[in-house]
């Protein structure tokens, strides 16, 4: 399943009149992102257009292969005094969008702190350390304390599957595994139940055990978790900490390279 809105791969500012969607018409729609002009196509979201023009906006639940979800709120930007999810908001000509500002980054930092305290995140002992988007964003946005009280929720791990371990302690409810399993694997292994602060992942088995589902370590859903919930067994620490994805360079650099053609 691909994103509902096309993702034009533009390297830099287009000269007027480049190829456009079937609707044609608009040729030079732009908005300003932190003062920089960003061109976009009709229907493109702020985040997509920004990425295409080489500007990174932090995000966790957004993924290029899926329609916008808008739950993590890390991609929040300010438009005409309103705070909106840039992943879900279609861009409009002439908008002035604030993203990389002390105010927006301050809110993002608070959202990260919320995600940290509602779960049980012990980075130093986590297999995903250095490959984890939550941790990488926390470094990049200079989160130095958890600020709020920890909730210390009781979230038992599920080790029933022969190849995959589920450590729910780290779940941030981005629903990428839910969407990947449903839309890409055609299985529906994951779903969310309960609500509010008690919301949590469940798997598709009466026993509640991943081992009783048709989940496979080759599923798309097995490789999409931005944090350390879904881990393949017996391959722990194959790459030493210090040499991992976000260890050398910040996520805002890595994320922009990944999606380039």
């Amino acid at each position: 399943m691909s994103a509902s809105h096309g993702r034009p791969k533009k390297g830099s500012l287009p000269p007027g009149g480049t190829a456009h969607s079937a609707k044609g018409a608009q040729t030079s729609a732009t908005f300003l992102l932190d003062g920089q002009p960003v061109p976009f196509d009709e229907g493109q979201t702020i985040l997509e257009a920004a990425r295409a023009a080489g500007h990174y906006i932090p995000h966790l639940c957004w993924h290029p292969d899926f329609p916008p979800h808008g739950s993590c709120k890390l991609c929040i930007v300010k438009v005409a005094g309103r705070h909106v999810s840039s992943c879900a908001m279609p861009a409009k000509d002439g908008w002035e969008v604030e993203s990389n500002t002390p105010e927006m980054n301050g809110e993002r930092r608070a959202l990260l702190q919320m995600l940290f305290v509602e779960g049980n995140h012990f980075c130093p002992s986590c297999e995903k350390s250095g490959n984890c988007q939550l941790q990488a964003l926390a470094y990049d946005l200079e989160m130095t304390t958890p600020r709020f009280n920890h909730f210390f929720p009781d979230r038992p791990v599920d080790a029933t599957h022969p190849d995959v371990l589920l450590d729910f302690n780290r779940c941030i409810f981005c629903e990428l595994c839910v969407r990947a399993s449903r839309d890409q694997d055609g299985k529906g292994v994951f779903a969310l139940t309960n609500r509010g602060i008690h919301k949590h992942l469940v798997v598709n088995a009466e026993s509640g055990c991943l081992g009783d589902t048709d989940f496979s370590k080759d599923d798309a859903a097995a490789h999409i978790c931005p944090v350390g919930v879904i881990l393949e067994k017996r391959v722990g620490f194959a790459v030493p900490i210090g040499q991992r994805k976000y260890d050398a360079r910040p996520i805002r650099v890595v994320a922009m390279e990944e999606d380039k053609p």
Binding site: C72, L111, R195, I197
Partner: peptide, 8 residues
């Protein structure tokens, strides 16, 4: 519980 700010 959908969005981070309200849930937490």
């Amino acid at each position: 519980g959908f969005c981070t700010p309200c849930r937490v």
